[in-house]
Design a protein around this nucleic acid. Structure first.
Lengths: 95, 95
DNA sequence: GATAATTATATCATTCGTGATATGTTAGCC
DNA sequence: GGCTAACATATCACGAATGATATAATTATC
């Protein structure tokens, strides 16, 4: 029986796919976190955009998690508008 | 007497300058960390570049800390080549 | 000091993220 | 239903990061 999991597991054996998937997941997590933080601060996308000197569409794009190539400058800018500081830590992988 | 610190402190009163400075410092920290991790793994810039599918000049640029607009994708790529995962955490500022 | 290895800097083309605007979609409210 | 607010999506110009290459500068080794 071909479950979705079995298909993904098979794909995961491929290094490129695995890395792309992991990266995508991380960006998605960032997107989710941004949404969470924005709602907690009680702002709409437009309000946050204005405070961060950007556009509502840019915020929507960030929160969509589709583009996994955001710049650190942009992330900082958005976070600053929410009184948040994004910190980066470097951890060893399992390998 | 005009010390360097007094001049910087004065500039720090300006919001834009302060944010730019803070951001610059963070990028510089990332750059330093990358250098540290690369040396610990015993690779040259060229070796790391090859492993990360980029160029030696790109690694040098990253490590120089001059460009504070690196993309997360690029950071991930370089880190992956060192078996490192960059994690992002969101912290509240003092305000 | 010469030579080689490593890193820094410069330049250019290309790709891609961002800003901006407009428009589509959805959900809630009257 | 119509209306409004909030969010999603599309498109385009522009600027900036990246890839690539070459070359200068630095460091290490002899």
């Amino acid at each position: 029986m071909k479950t979705l999991k079995s298909i993904i597991d098979k794909k995961m054996e491929n290094r490129e796919f695995r890395e792309a998937f992991d990266e995508y997941e991380k960006e998605f997590q960032i997107a989710q976190k941004i949404i969470q933080l924005r709602k907690k601060s009680g702002m709409t996308q437009s309000e946050l955009a204005k405070k961060a000197n950007t556009s509502q569409s840019a915020i929507a794009r960030l929160e969509s998690g589709e583009h996994h190539n955001i710049t650190l400058a942009f992330l900082h800018k958005v976070c600053n508008a929410m009184n948040i500081i994004p910190e980066i830590r470097f951890k060893k992988t399992g390998l």
